[in-house]
Every structure is written in C-alpha cells, then in structure tokens.
C-alpha cells in the first residue's frame, strides 16, 4: 500500500510547484546587478552631442535610470507615468536612449514631453549590455552611493511606481 502511494505523492508535489508556477512570470529575468555598483558609462547627451554625461555625475543623489527608445511600443505606455513623476519632482529621472537615432528620439520627446533631467545616447547598445538590458523599457533605481537598488523590467505602471519604486526611493533618500 505504501509503495503504491508513491506516484500519487510525487504527482501532488509537482502539482504544488505548478500551482506556484502559475503566478510566476517565466520571461522575467532578475538582474544580478541589483545590490552592485551601477556599471560606469560616459556617453554624449541627447540634447547636445558635445556634452558628455556619466554615472558619476549623479553620485550623492537617488535617481532613476530609464532605458527607452523611440521604436519601442511599450515605452509609449509608461511615458505619461514618467512625465507625471518628473513633474512631482520626487526623484530625478535620467534616460538612456537605447539603439535609436537622435532625430527620432528628439521628436519623441518633443511630442510626448520630456521627463528626463538628461538623456544619454547609447547608439550601439554597449552600455545597454553592461546594464543587462534585454527588453526596453527597463528602469533602474540607483542610490546615493551609485548602487543599483532595484530593476523594473517592462513599463513602469502607476501601481509599480506607487508600491515599489516610490517607497524604495523615499527609504534610500533618508539614508
């Protein structure tokens, strides 16, 4: 009797995992960079190609680093959320224009509003690779010491902002 129950027990364990698995997103890959210093970059700015922007410029403050592109459909979904956030002035947002053309990117900002203090241009996607970008948009929360505290994969929704990003930003700002 006991041995005959074994298949049933194994099956029930598998079912337990499958039940948990239903609520997980297999496409979401957590970044190994969380808790590590943000990879260094110094790139030309979108508004002025002669000026260079570097991650060191943001040392000492908490900031959001938003990877976007004019060709990215999902970026359109999050754009108004970012614009509203930038107007509130809670936290500065810096952009990384990923594998884009300058003209398209500028036009995009002109149309949808510019939530970014500044945008770095990553034309060949090298910095994107350093940050482990695999699906635009992605957003990083980086603390005063320049350490990545959180990575949002996919659009920043109002819910994500309210429940995850803003509480984290507030906590980091007090530190």
């Amino acid at each position: 009797m006991k041995r005959a129950l074994l298949p049933l027990i194994i099956f029930l364990i598998v079912v337990g995992f499958l039940l948990v698995g239903l609520n997980l997103d297999p496409r979401e890959v957590p970044s190994p960079l969380v808790g590590k210093p943000a990879p260094a970059f110094s790139l030309p700015r979108l508004d002025n190609a002669d000026k260079i922007i570097s991650n060191k410029d943001m040392l000492g403050k908490v900031w959001l680093f938003n990877v976007w592109a004019s060709w990215c459909g999902a970026c359109r979904d999050e754009h108004h959320v970012l614009v509203a956030l930038s107007k509130s002035g809670v936290v500065p947002i810096y952009g990384l224009d990923y594998k884009d053309t300058r003209l398209d990117a500028l036009q995009w900002l002109a149309e949808g509003g510019n939530p970014y203090v500044a945008t770095a241009v990553d034309e060949n996607g090298r910095v994107g690779i350093d940050y482990g970008v695999y699906g635009v948009p992605e957003t990083y929360v980086i603390d005063k010491a320049g350490v990545i505290a959180y990575k949002q994969i996919g659009p920043v929704t109002e819910a994500v902002l309210r429940d995850k990003i803003l509480p984290l930003v507030k906590r980091l700002q007090i530190q």
Partner: peptide, 8 residues
C-alpha cells in the same frame, strides 16, 4: 555575460 544577465 552571467555578471550582466545572470545564470539564466
């Protein structure tokens, strides 16, 4: 690559 994207 693992440093950037994880064991995935």
């Amino acid at each position: 690559l693992v440093e950037r994207y994880g064991d995935f």
